[in-house]
Amino acid sequence: MELTTKSVVVFDYGFGNVRSAERALARAGADVEITRDFDKAMNADGLLVPGVGAFAACMQGLTDARGDWIIDRRLSGERPVMGICVGMQILFARGIEHGVEAEGLGEWPGSVEPLQADIVPHMGWNTVEAAGGSELFAGLDADARFYFVHSYAVHEWSFQTENALMTAPKVTWSTHGRPFVAAVENGALWATQFHPEKSGDAGAQLLTNWIGSL
Rank of each mutant, 00 (worst) to 15 (best):
R23Q: 08
E2Q: 11
D12N: 15
V120T: 13
I84Q: 02
I211C: 06
V128Q: 00
G95V: 02
F92A: 09
V49D: 00
D201V: 09
H176L: 09
T167W: 08
A138G: 00
N186F: 10
F148I: 09
Y152F: 15
H195V: 10
H176A: 08
V120R: 00
L206Q: 01
S174I: 07
A204E: 13
N186G: 08
P80K: 02
E185A: 08
A142N: 10
T192K: 10
W173H: 11
G177A: 06
A182Q: 01
I119Y: 14
D68W: 02
E156G: 04
G133A: 10
N186C: 11
M123F: 15
A30F: 07
A54V: 07
D39R: 14
H195Q: 09
F11Q: 02
D141A: 13
R79E: 05
S76E: 13
A144R: 01
I90T: 05
T167Q: 14
L91W: 09
K40D: 10
G14S: 11
L136A: 01
A182H: 02
M82E: 00
E103L: 13
V8A: 03
D12I: 01
S199M: 08
A144M: 07
H122K: 06
Q60A: 13
N43W: 09
R66K: 14
A130T: 04
I84H: 01
T4H: 11
A56L: 00
F194I: 06
D68S: 01
Q193G: 07
E103F: 12
E135I: 09
K198C: 12
Q89V: 08
E22G: 02
R94P: 01
G61V: 03
P196T: 09
F11M: 00
R73S: 14
D12V: 10
Y147A: 06
H176R: 06
K6Y: 07
V128P: 06
E2S: 14
T4P: 07
R74N: 03
N17K: 05
